[in-house]
Design a binder for these strands. Structure first.
Length: 293
DNA sequence: ACTGTACCCTGTAGGC
DNA sequence: TGCCTACAGGGTACAG
């Protein structure tokens, strides 16, 4: 579920509560999510102050005073909810407080001020790992990540250099976290619509035969940046599970041009085309065959 | 080296 | 009402 805008929205919601706080206790209600929780998870967290909370791609990274990073990924259905001091104690009461099924409240961080951060994840595709801060850039999770899409490193030149000669279609290329880190199924479809590019087109068409960026690559870069920024401004997209850290829904789902709109008329004035659903690498794609070539 | 498919897990929506 | 299938914002491990 959570792509870059959703993870960034969660980060902004958690940061004011987490940063500067100290961890009083850890509740791990099961030993694993997608992967086993870190060895001696509680020992390594309790007593630590959280110095900062940043995002890289779809990862949340809490910097701990002891020198380790707590790296968190929300998978498809993960969500963090802040429960303020005074919230009720029994798991069953979380349903009122977080709106999530308490059976899937897997990890609870208790902070010294009495508030709690509850991690809920029905499908358990999310995970948490810890690593020394100095080792993070070389860690397997981060080493191969591509450009951060809202950073200056995502440019037409970058796209052309990564896409040249590749046989993959544009949709799969943009979904590949080694190329661009943070896009997912929704925002790839939305960015391609804004750029007027078909998801079926070969990624290689972002570069000419000399490896220089084509006008398609030039259109794609601002399309990606704009759709992500607008989605962040709207607090992300809530389809099912995703919520802000305070339980609120995102609003960007109301602004989808193509995602999940198969069979509906294209939103572009005067187009009149019908949005089509196709499949790339097992994931649904949506595009307007008239607007997107 | 690259590309496509199966799979991890649970919940829900839709067809019969 | 049930039962069954297909599908869902993620990523990874293989086989070809």
């Amino acid at each position: 579920m959570p792509e870059l805008p959703e993870v960034e929205t969660v980060r902004r919601g958690l940061a004011p509560v987490l940063v500067g706080s100290r961890i009083a206790a850890l509740e791990a209600r099961r030993p694993d999510l997608r992967f086993p929780l870190p060895e001696r998870f509680g020992e390594r967290l309790v007593g630590q102050e959280i110095l900062g909370l940043e995002r890289r791609a779809k990862y949340l990274i809490a910097a701990l005073s002891g020198g380790e990073d707590l790296v968190m990924h929300l998978g498809m259905t993960g969500r963090f909810t802040i429960v303020r001091d005074g919230g009720r104690e029994t798991p069953g009461d979380y349903i009122h407080e977080t709106g999530a099924d308490p059976a899937h409240d897997h990890v609870v961080l208790h902070l010294c001020d009495g508030s709690r951060i509850v991690y809920n994840d029905p499908r358990r595709f999310g995970f948490m790992v810890m690593m020394p801060r100095t080792e993070r850039p070389d860690h397997a999770l981060f080493r191969g990540l591509g450009a951060e899409p809202l950073g200056i490193e995502l440019s037409a030149d970058y796209l052309a250099s990564r896409a040249g000669g590749k046989k993959v279609n544009l949709k799969s290329f943009l979904m590949d976290q080694r190329m661009i880190a943070g896009l997912g199924n929704i925002y790839v479809s939305e960015a391609l619509f804004r750029a007027g590019l078909s998801p079926n087109r070969g990624a290689r068409s972002l570069a000419d035969r000399h490896g220089a960026p084509t006008d398609r690559a030039m259109r794609l870069v601002p399309a990606i940046k704009q759709v992500l920024q607008q989605a962040i401004d709207a607090g992300g997209s809530t389809l099912r599970d995703y919520r802000h850290a305070d339980g609120a829904s995102g609003a960007f789902q109301d602004e989808f041009a193509v995602y999940d709109r198969a069979g509906l008329v294209c939103v572009r004035k005067g187009c009149g085309g019908t949005i089509r659903r196709t499949v790339h690498a097992g994931r649904a794609s949506f595009h307007c065959p008239r607007c997107q070539r």
